[in-house]
Every structure is written in C-alpha cells, then in structure tokens.
Design a protein around this nucleic acid. Structure first.
Length: 469
RNA sequence: GGCGCCAUCGUCUAGCCUGGUUAGGACGCAGGGUUUUCAACCCUGUAACACGGGUUCGAAUCCCGUUGGCGCUACCA
C-alpha cells in the first residue's frame, strides 16, 4: 500500500514554525517511502477560519519547498461527506443527539472539579429513541455525540511505543454541532479515511485526541492509520512556542531574511538527529537520511542562535549576485545600483546571519553616519597625529587613477606606509573616516566599494571635522 | 483537579533498545591564533547523565518510586 501523509493546519493564524516542522516530517516520511504528502485545510470552524491565513499557509509551504501532492483539500467543502457518515452513525445508533445546554455542561464540569474527577459528559440522552429525539429536535437545539464504549484503548505510537487510555474518562465525544456542521474529531477521521492517509504524523499536543479518533474509526469501521506524535517546539521558558516569545510564523522568518533551506535544516534538528554528527543537509539528503524511529520524545527549545548560525552557513555558500537579490529589499531606501548591491553583498557575505542585518551593517556605504571625532583616534592618538596620517593617506589616494582604484592598488600603495608609520595609526583613522563606525570591514574593502570620489570626500570631511574641533 | 507524555552540558543532541565510552558532536560562552576594528576562519577550553531505591561483578543504559517539566482537558483545531 502506498504511504500517504498529510499536514492539516487550521487557517486561524499565520503558518506557525511548529506546523511547518510537522509538515516537513510528514513530507520527509512520505517521500522517503515513495509516497504522497497532502495538504488539508481544516476550516470547519467558520468563525475563526480566514482566507488570509489559508493563503499564508500555502505561501509558506511553497516558500519552504514542501510541495504537496494532489489538490489542496478544504474540509469546509466536504461537509456533505461528513454528513453521510454522521447520518450513518445515528442510524446505527452509534451516535445520538445530546440536548444539554452549554450552561448545563458547565455546571456538570464544576461539580466534577469538586469531586476531583476528570471532566467528561456521559449523556443520558443516548437512550432516547431516534423518533423521540427527532421530535425534540424540532424545538430544541442539540449536538451529535458518539456513544462512547467503556473500554481501554491501546495503540502503538511510532515514536512513543504503546500508549493506553481509558475511555471511561472521555465521556460521550462530540462529533458535530448538527448534520451540516461537523466538529474536528469527526472531520479528521472521515477525511483521513477518505483520502487514504496511512500515517498520521502530528504534534504531541494531539496525543489525547488519538483515543477519541480511534473510537470514531471503530464506530465507522475504518482501518486505523499508524500514528506518530512529534515532540513539541518549545520557547526558552519551555512552554509551547507562541507569539509572545517573538517570531513564530514562517512568514516572519522569511521577512527577517532567513533562507528556506536554513529553516528546513534547523527545524529537522529539533527532535531529530542522524546517526553521525552531520548537521547540514539539503532536502534531498534529508529525505534519504530521515528516520522516524530516531525522532526524539522530549520537546525541544527553538534556539534562534543556532538557526542564525545555520543561516550564516547557507548564506556563505551563495555568490554575491544571489545575495544582492536577497539584500535589495532592505536597502531599498538608498536606491542602490545593481553594481553597488553586488559589491555590498561581496563585502558582507561572511558577516550576515540574516539578510535583514544588512541594513545596520551596510547603510554607511550609502550615507556616512555622523560620528564622534574621538572615534578617529586609534588608541588615544593625539589629534595632530591623526590629521597628519589622514593627509598622508589622502595624498596617496589622490594619486591613484579612478580606473585602478581597487583593493589591490590601494593596498599596494597604502601598506608600505602603514607598515612604516604603524598599521593602527594609519588604517584605523582611515577606516573610521570612511565608515563612521567603530566596527566595519577593512578600509581597503570600503575604498573599493565607495570608489575614489566618495572616499576622498569622506576623508576630507574627517579632516574638516578635526580642524573645526 | 483528572488523564497522558517526557527527563544527558545553558541550548539542540549522540550514546540507551543489545549494560563495561576519557559520556561524543553542534550552537553559545571564554581564551588564543590571524587582523587596524568587526565578521569569517583555525586551535584550545567550558559544561550534563534530575533524585532515591533496586537488579548486576558492573547502570546514563534495565526495573520501581519520587521530584520536576510539558501537553490535553470545548458545541476550537
């Protein structure tokens, strides 16, 4: 039988990295078994579901390169199928109408809390005959529940091994608000069955749903899929990763300038590890090496530092022309030329953890920042000395023609003098005059990016500042 | 409260199944090299088997308990 997995996000928010990682693991497992990976939008909750979020989910998956097979499935478009199964369950007396109000249910829960027992609704309406229930339905509101049998449910989780639940603690599971409004557990079971999903790989937060879904499968006489519950991605405080801890949606990471490859690589490493010490993988390698049995049981913290480090490794593999494309949006306000972007890309290639960092690192190239005069001084060198040294540099640079004003030439012309006077004494003031910053790439690299005219301007400006002070 | 899941450096983890390792790697951090500064790169260092009982010649590894953490507990998904 063909292996089929799915990612089933609900469009009630932007695509979360946790969902992305679940998608990734589903994708890897399906692909390494030459199977299929499906996308199903779980939008049965019409109140909370938004088209905007569905679009974001689709875009995020595409951005990551996790392409799904077949048409996207929308649960909301399948209610007639859900309805058929629901009707069948009622007809077979495996499901029934529950007429209790939300207030009554809340009251029941309160009492159960007092008794210190688990919250559940064991409904006496299940004994009502269908005729009577239908009659009652004309005047009263009701939801459809499963007649939960009393038994122990044991299933094998591919990651955790045998897991056991006692259905006595579950109560009669809610299936639908009415025939046309299915609820999560019913919809999942029906759709997984209909689309022939063989492996349900999802977050650990769904573990308590599994016995409920197995019960529904049994009532519907469906084949039970294999289950694998992934460890959760945690925040630094070890709670489930959420919005208040900073960036959590895939689109935010895209905007911050992370590469999809790096995201994929990093997400795999939360909760999974290969046999050897290799850490950098592309998707194809991952498909080959991934092993569900090697997935961790304990939750893992989303370590942004590690992500940055991996992203940095991927950025270093790119050529400047590629980097130029990625950094362009962040430098937009300066209207840089293509040539400038490539020079800047070359300059900062090794320094970038994320593309968005380029704005802080490289804006000095386009606009000299204002800086303190004393920054020009290397190890508290006196002002006069700096002035003299900058004059020396200036006269050397002015003698280089505009055409040969590149790293090689400026280096050969300037270095003998620097070695003579002292590298720090000559090169530090030059670098600050050019960048206005305490930390930056080397003066030779900056000279090259700035070009002769702008370089000379900036050095003159530094000299003016020194004279005025 | 109830139920379930989990537990190796600060973090991600290898090792656990099939007891015998100087408990390994990566990120971070610290120091050094290179360097005018920063980054990158190279080298070195730092730091962990939650606790208590068993079983065993021997336990990170197997068993039990304790503690702790997390998840779920809807007419959300």
């Amino acid at each position: 039988m063909k292996i089929r997995t799915r990612i089933a996000p609900s469009p009630t928010g932007y695509m979360h990295v946790g969902t992305a990682r679940t998608a990734l693991f589903n994708y890897l497992f399906a692909k390494q078994n030459h199977g299929e990976f499906l996308l199903r939008i779980e939008d049965t909750d019409t109140e909370r579901s938004k088209k905007e979020f569905e679009t974001d989910i689709v875009n995020s998956l595409k951005w990551l390169g996790l392409n799904w097979d077949e048409e996207l499935i929308r649960q909301s478009e399948r209610v007639s199928i859900h309805k058929e199964y629901l009707a069948k369950l009622i007809e077979n007396k495996k499901a029934f109408y529950c007429f209790h109000t939300i207030e009554e249910l809340e009251e029941e829960q309160k009492n159960q809390a007092l008794e210190k027992i688990s919250f559940k609704h064991e409904c006496e309406h299940k004994d009502l005959s269908l005729d009577k229930a239908l009659e009652k339905l004309k005047k009263e509101n009701a939801i459809i529940r499963l007649k939960t049998p009393h038994k122990k449910i044991t299933f094998k989780d591919l990651i955790r091994g045998e897991v056991e639940f006692d259905t006595n603690l579950l109560g009669d599971i809610s299936l639908a608000k009415n025939l046309d409004t299915p609820l999560y557990n019913l919809a999942v079971v029906v759709d997984d069955h209909e689309t022939q999903i063989t492996h349900v790989i999802r977050g650990e937060d769904h573990l308590p749903n599994t016995p409920k879904q197995i019960l529904i499968q049994e009532a519907l006489e469906f084949k039970q899929p294999e289950y694998a519950h992934l460890p959760l991605i945690l925040s630094a405080d070890r709670s489930k990763l959420s919005k208040r801890h900073g960036a959590v949606s895939v689109n935010e990471f895209a905007r911050l300038g992370y590469l999809p490859k790096a995201m994929l690589n990093f997400m795999t490493l939360i909760g999974w590890h290969p046999k050897d010490d290799k850490e950098i993988f592309n998707l194809e390698e991952l498909v080959k090496e991934f092993d569900l049995e090697r997935v961790q049981k304990a939750g893992g913290i989303f370590n942004i530092e590690k992500l940055k480090s991996i992203n940095n490794q991927y950025i270093k593999e790119l050529v400047p022309a590629e980097i130029a494309k990625f950094i362009a949006p962040y430098l937009d306000m300066y209207n840089p030329t293509e040539a400038q972007l490539i020079k800047v890309a070359h300059l900062f290639k090794d320094r970038l953890n994320t593309f968005s960092e380029i704005k802080d690192l490289a804006s000095f190239v386009f606009a000299l920042p204002t800086y303190e005069i004393k920054l020009l001084s290397w190890k508290d060198a006196p002002k006069e000395k700096i002035k003299t040294n900058l004059q020396i540099v200036l006269s050397i640079l002015e003698n280089i023609s505009e055409d040969s004003f590149d790293i090689d030439t400026t280096t050969t012309e300037l270095m003998p003098k620097a070695n003579n006077i002292g590298r720090g004494d000559l090169l530090w003031p030059l670098r600050v005059a050019l960048s206005g910053m305490a930390k930056s790439p080397s003066p030779f690299e900056i000279l090259d990016v700035l070009g002769k005219k702008e370089s000379i301007n900036r050095i003159k400006k530094a000299l003016e500042k020194l004279n005025e002070s």
